[in-house]
Simulated assay, not measured.
Amino acid sequence: MKYNAFRSETDQVSRLGFGAMGLGGSFGTHDEKDLINSVLNCLEQGVNFIDTARAYGDSERILGKALKEWKGTKPFLASKVQSLGPGSIGWGTHIPIESAYPEGWLRGSTELSLKELGVEVIDLIQLHQYWPQWDRSDYWMEELLRLKDEGKIRYIGISIPDQRHDIALSIVRSGAIDAVQTVFNIFDPLPLDCLLPFCEEHNVAFLARCVMDEGGLTGFLTEDTTFTDSDYRKTYFDYVPRAMYIERVDRLRKFIPEFADNLAELALKFVLHHPAVTSALVSMHIPQYANQNIAALDKAPLPNEVFEEIRKYHRWVRNFYDTKFW
């Protein structure tokens, strides 16, 4: 496992992070004991960064059970405050901060996360959605700073709702936050243009999510693939004709196996190519795939010319979240 400093050399976090959305059933139903073992499996192999959220169903509770069984060094825990906005409100478009996070809500959500996780401190607490209009108000940041002063959280971050990476530029430059989480993958490399360099310049941790584009970049999707009603991806890939998505993925097979053993490895290598990516968050609730992803970190990185070719000629920027929130 390879590690990066999170803000300072004091905190070293694994470059591959355990994205815990899958623990809550978003990608299918699994036995709870198997989910607990999936966490332990990754911890044993050096993964020490775990990212969860209040909105991820039972994820925090199941993660808390895994942490009780874990006998090693406590991992770096990140969670997200659940927005109060009902349903999809606030994800596709801006809503007032008072509607998403009214006074007292950040504290209440954080304290519930502490209880579910069974810990006394959460290393990083993030707003699960963020809009730059909220910077006109200061009560929400003051509330988070009080939680920090009380020792209940150590760092403050934001998670960008969708692919609009530019909305975080102002707060990153302000020095008010410690971390930003956003979509970053082969199809959407736009953080490389502005957000990632800004994070590097201002020493803000950069957390990449949707590294595999909800699994699409692994090549699993076919015309006949179906999803249950509870699967987060049920409408995700149908933003465009599915054949179009599959064709875009197939274009990447030219790099296999010379530069990666499989498409998932290629996707991971691409995101981790830039040294300022603090951690790439990947769903690792299925040990078979988790082990493959962990092994990829020991493989040779992409040559610069291959990275640039993928960045320039395989980008396919589109906002699949439109189908879920509009």
Rank of each mutant, 00 (worst) to 15 (best):
G92Y: 11
N48I: 11
L77A: 02
A66P: 13
H128T: 03
L67V: 00
E60F: 01
K152I: 03
A55N: 09
K65Y: 03
I97T: 01
L144G: 06
G64T: 06
M141F: 15
E120D: 13
D149N: 14
K68H: 13
A100D: 04
Y139W: 07
Y56D: 00
I95P: 01
E44T: 01
L84Q: 15
R146W: 10
L117Q: 00
T73P: 13
H94N: 14
K148I: 02
G57M: 07
E116Y: 11
Q133S: 11
L127Y: 12
K65S: 12
E103L: 08
T110W: 08
H94E: 15
H94I: 11
K74V: 10
T73E: 13
I95Y: 12
G90P: 11
L144A: 10
F76I: 10
W131P: 02
G85N: 15
R136Y: 03
D149W: 06
S137H: 13
I50H: 12
S59E: 06
Q45V: 04
T73C: 02
Y130R: 04
W105Y: 14
I156F: 07
K71W: 01
L147Q: 02
I89S: 14
G57E: 05
W70E: 04
G87I: 04
G64E: 03
G104N: 10
G118I: 04
L63P: 10
R54P: 04
V81R: 12
P132N: 04
K148D: 03
R146A: 14
P86F: 05
G104L: 02
G64I: 06
R107T: 15
G118M: 05
W105M: 11
I95M: 13
W105K: 13
N48P: 11
K74R: 15
G90S: 13
E98F: 00
S79Y: 03
N48Y: 13
E103K: 15
V81H: 10
K68L: 10
L112A: 14
F49T: 03
E150N: 02
E44H: 08
G104V: 05
V119Q: 12
L127M: 14
T110E: 07
T73Y: 07
T93S: 15
S99G: 00
V119P: 11
S83P: 07
D149P: 05
R154A: 11
H94F: 13
L43P: 07
G64H: 06
L106S: 00
G72I: 00
F49I: 06
L67Q: 01
G87Y: 08
E60R: 02
E116Q: 15
H128A: 09
A100L: 11
G157F: 06
